[in-house]
């Protein structure tokens, strides 16, 4: 019993990290149709900036927001310098631009920070919480809480605010959005800023558990992308469910079947789900341009 509970807690911890990363993909996709492969780098920028500031003696309560701001600024820069000038490039070209940007950002972090692995203390210490024979790190609660707060804020923002509706309108038909008076440029700008901020926040919250280094973004993007697609791209609920699902599948496979093939289990489940539900668990039926 305590065994099962431990596996669940492990899956939820890891799943919350995947969910937080996956949520970052949502806004940019909603506004532009682009899955941003530099999203993992936003996560690392958040983690590395926080780690560097904390190492300098800055209290975490100041370092964390600064790290999120740093990520946000990089997101805006990515939009202004790379995505906006590309204009109406084919979608696949835009995706390649984000891949180029991720390589570029990795290079910058390697120079600005270093190549070491970094970590800082959990916000509420590193002493495990125990109940019913299983354990959980207090930082896991921060990550789980963080991903739910981001999810709720995102769902509200997209569904109930003027700016959020503008982002959705921009995605479904940019020309029509312009006609009805939506500032599509501002909507895109906002979506990149927020997505990057969400990514950096995920990094700030997760680093005490996952650790971070300049090149950790590839794995983050890979896991986050998997969670996004399992849930259905563009859906905040999908990102959340997809993240937790993958975390739990990995933990259960490691616990009950074979730790060697826990990552394989996650991909097999993704493939099976997509065979039955080609738009993911929560995806909308839309036609995409490629």
């Amino acid at each position: 019993m305590s065994e099962l509970l431990q596996f669940v807690l492990s899956g939820v911890t890891v799943g919350a990290i995947y969910a937080a990363v996956a949520l970052g993909f949502t806004l940019i996709y909603n506004a532009s149709g682009v899955v941003n492969f530099a999203q993992g780098e936003f996560v690392v920028i958040g983690g590395m900036t926080a780690a560097a500031l904390i190492a300098l003696g800055v209290p975490v309560i100041i370092a964390a927001p600064l790290a999120v701001i740093a990520g946000t600024l990089v997101g805006i820069a990515l939009y202004r310098l790379a995505i906006k000038p590309a204009g109406k490039a084919p979608l696949v070209s835009l995706v390649i631009i984000t891949i180029g940007a991720s390589i570029f950002l990795r290079g910058v972090m390697q120079v600005v920070f270093d190549k070491q692995i970094h970590r800082y203390e959990g916000f509420s210490g590193d002493d495990a919480l125990r109940f019913l024979g299983a354990t959980l790190l207090p930082q896991s609660l921060w990550i789980i809480g963080g991903s739910f707060v981001v999810f709720a804020a995102l769902a509200w923002f997209i569904g109930h605010t003027h700016a959020g509706r503008g982002i959705r309108a921009t995605a479904s038909n940019r020309f029509a959005a312009v006609l009805v008076g939506i500032n599509t440029g501002r909507a895109m700008n906002l979506s990149f800023a927020l997505s990057a901020g969400i990514g950096a926040l995920a990094g700030v919250l997760a680093t005490p558990v996952t650790f971070t280094s300049y090149d950790a973004g590839v794995l983050m993007a890979l896991k986050g992308f998997s969670a996004t697609m399992l849930g259905g791209v563009g859906s905040p609920a999908g990102a959340l469910v997809g993240g937790f699902a993958i975390g739990l599948i990995e933990a259960m496979t490691a616990g009950y079947i074979s730790s060697d093939y826990k990552d394989a289990a996650a991909f097999i489940v993704i493939l099976l789900v997509l065979f039955v539900m080609p738009q993911g668990l929560f995806g909308r039926r839309t036609t995409e341009r490629v």
Binding site: V14, I17, K262
Partner: peptide, 14 residues
């Protein structure tokens, strides 16, 4: 076993 980037190995250790 565990993967190089894994954030939690408590199932294996359990």
């Amino acid at each position: 076993t565990y993967g190089p980037g894994d954030a939690d190995v408590t199932p294996q250790l359990t």
